[in-house]
Design a protein around this nucleic acid. Structure first.
Lengths: 129, 129
DNA sequence: CTAGTTGCAAAGAGTTTGCATGGCG
DNA sequence: CGCCATGCAAACTCTTTGCAACTAG
């Protein structure tokens, strides 16, 4: 289950993932199909999800989308996710702090400070509508 | 594509969905399997998703989970989603307002005010760890 | 009546598993 | 050299589609 050995394949998958804000299995496989098998890509991404390094969600296109979560331990970090194009913008701003304190205090809910997702429409997609 | 006629099946699916904060296709099908076919359940839920009444995400169990979104047009409404059990808590609190204004103003991002999701651990799951 | 709806069976798509081969340490 | 990782093919699961029968209006 746990990956113990370092291999060329694991490195390639990780490197490729880090090149994307947001990706699908297919996009990674497309880039690496000559070097890494599909199964291994699934296995590596599963491992990253278990480690909390990658998150997974279903886009408007009904496909599994993944994002690499930069290790970021700021208290004031959050994501703006566009519901239309799936693009994710990282924002660091202390405007999140009041909210964070309120939730921890009043709702007995342990905030995952690196995984606050604000859904909506980005600049580009807003204009298209 | 558009649902024009009212049928017993549609009513049953909608009624069952409203009974759950959070559900999977299987849970609904299990309850209604004598009255409504699986295909129809998928179709009705797709319709509700398109209407913005239901949202869909992938849980830790790797299954599609859905939630019925109560029609709520408050500016200060958001969700607390437990990453462990998938449970969703609705919160109304004006602590969201400063954040909302900031995002709209500074990041040229059109907030979906009924779809702000704060991820983390709920009371119960926090204690289990 | 007529067009929308249902549900079965089959197809499709994405993902996981079994197992033989290959490679890290 | 031993154990872990890889990758193909097959299996599996969830979801969608085709189509004939049914039904609301």
């Amino acid at each position: 289950m746990s990956m113990v050995y370092n291999t060329k394949q694991k490195d390639l998958v990780l490197k490729e993932i880090k090149n994307h804000k947001e990706f699908t299995i297919n996009e990674i496989h497309e880039k690496l199909k000559d070097e890494v098998g599909l199964t291994t890509i699934y296995r590596k991404i599963d491992e990253l999800i278990k480690d909390g390094k990658v998150s997974k969600y279903i886009g408007k296109d009904n496909l599994a989308h993944y994002q690499y979560l930069e290790q970021c331990n700021l208290d004031n970090h959050f994501y703006l996710r566009c519901e239309e194009c799936g693009n994710i913008e990282h924002v660091d701003c202390d405007c999140i702090n009041a909210l964070s304190e309120h939730i921890t205090g009043k709702h007995n809910f342990s905030l995952d400070k690196n995984n606050i997702v604000i859904n909506g429409l980005c600049n580009k997609c807003k204009d298209k509508k």
